[in-house]
Design a protein around this nucleic acid. Structure first.
Lengths: 294, 294
DNA sequence: GAGATTGGTCCACAATATGGACCTTATTCT
DNA sequence: AGAATAAGGTCCATATTGTGGACCAATCTC
């Protein structure tokens, strides 16, 4: 096939670099950014960034300096921890013009919490994880604080997270659960992969997910996912309460409310797609259609 | 940073060790990210990114691919324009745990718009520019749409923007106006640098800024900046209306409302600093103190 | 105050990012 | 239509850029 050795060598080196980005340092820097974003508001010390990323200290530091120059990361002068910077916040607001899920969902969340008196959540997928984008407090005096805004858990851990997973095709589910296996076993004793698969089957059967206090005992949750018009999973709405408020009869009731709001979200998203019509802020909105990541 | 390649090359080979970042490609990639964020929701075609950044096509494309791999940028399949991705939105929400200005300001904006019937805005500084983070509609039937959420103008262009500029020390003002001079002359015919300086002096004297329809005629604005407890400028609140609703007497009235909300914002920011107490989301919040960018 | 841990920097070396040249696909013009 | 123009996208030899072992400095721990 190869006409000469030169060509073979070129293609060989190229093949060996298959999957190589051609932008190693940028990829690394952005991985650091995601790593820092994953962490609760306290920020991360350099060592943890080094161990968490697998990079070595000078490299991590150099990339962090670049991120800081851009304002995406800040270093607290006292603790020297690295955390997300103001520019990340501003960029997020700018990105919200297209990806305004939160804004779209706020009305649903408020209504869910008002009607049920329980705390409601909006969660989205982020790789093999699930991020809680908003927590809307309920009024019932006994509340669970197992899930806070910004918290991230592997897909399948928690009601909203499980709903997202259950909405994905089987091969994705397999890939994701496998990828998370190590983390699940190490950090989530209540969530053995087999258990997640069982919960997931149940969720699909019922049409809504239930987390019977597996993360924090007595802290139950119920969730349902919603999709973009093209079928991609967009996010999940969920409710959390103590076990006594989550018995079978009430589960059905709550699931009904969730279903209503899921329908609303899918209607709004559909509206955004036709004609790129007015979405939030009186601006044309046009959610990108292609799937993310390879 | 470099306006053209000649200059970049000269400096690279010449001052080889002095002040070089050590992460050229990361810096470049993040500059592209900011460039894309600057653009209204429609996104940017590759050529504009190439010309706008001064990079060449393969380089720009390679960096964009890296940004896309991280989800920070997406490419619309149809127009092939590049725009901010979902990950940027999610990161923004995560960053909001620390930089929750918008959340903090929402109540003020709602009250301003309710009381005055006019549209109100939250703006923050971004380098030499000013970004509008939120637009809260007023109820008065005749409204100006000169400023939309996400819009960016040089500091000094518009009421909120001018308020931010006026709140900065003189040497910063000089540096910023000088840096923006070319853009102002080319794209903002109503805002000659000298005029901005005059408006600014007036704003400082009065305690609030006024834009007498310089961007869009008959579209007036009035603004006031607020600060972090350490003195750094945090943002600006502003109001917009048609000229007939912005005569001197009403200016004073509106300025009074603004002053009240500025006081509220500064009180809330001060509370965040003592003890890193509970801020938004029931989480300890701790706004970083150090200034951004060198 | 000796030992350990973490933050941060230096610099020789080679792997990585660079950009001129080139190919491919839309769009415009005659 | 078909040519011409412009934009999107890719290749690959080269040298510039990024890398990481070694090292110093400042805290923390006992």
């Amino acid at each position: 096939m190869w006409t000469n050795l030169e060509e073979a060598r070129v293609v060989a080196t190229h093949a060996s670099r298959a999957g190589m980005s051609g932008s190693q340092s940028v990829d690394r820097a952005l991985r650091l950014l995601a790593l820092i974003g994953r962490e609760p508001a306290g920020g991360l010390p350099l060592v943890e960034i080094v161990t968490g990323s697998g990079l070595n200290k000078p490299t991590a530091r150099r990339l962090l300096l670049a991120l800081m120059r851009a304002g995406l990361v800040e270093q607290e002068p006292k603790s020297r921890h690295y955390c997300l910077g103001e520019e990340a916040f501003v960029l997020g607001v700018l990105a919200a013009r297209r990806h305004g899920l939160l804004e779209l969902a706020m009305e649903s969340l408020r209504r869910l919490s008002a009607v049920t008196m329980d705390t409601s959540f909006l969660s989205v997928r982020r790789d093999n994880y699930c991020v809680c984008l908003h927590r809307e407090e309920g009024t019932y005096p006994v509340r669970t604080h197992a899930l806070q805004m910004g918290d991230q858990h592997p897909l399948g851990v928690g009601a909203g997270s499980l709903a997202l997973l259950a909405a994905l095709p089987d091969d994705d589910v397999d890939r994701i659960v496998t990828a998370n296996e190590a983390v699940l076993l190490a950090q989530y004793p209540g969530f053995a992969p087999a258990l997640i698969r069982a919960d997931l089957a149940l969720a699909r059967e019922r049409g809504f997910s239930v987390n019977p206090g597996r993360l924090v005992s007595s802290s139950w949750g119920i969730g349902a996912a919603f999709r973009y018009p093209d079928g991609r999973v967009a996010g999940a709405l969920s409710l959390a309460a103590i076990d006594s408020r989550m018995q079978p009869a009430r589960q059905e009731e709550l699931a009904g409310h969730l279903a209503q709001e899921v329908a609303r979200m899918e209607r709004l998203l559909a509206e955004m797609f036709v004609s790129g019509g007015k979405g939030m802020g009186g601006r044309p909105v046009n959610v990108a259609l292609e799937a993310r990541r390879a």
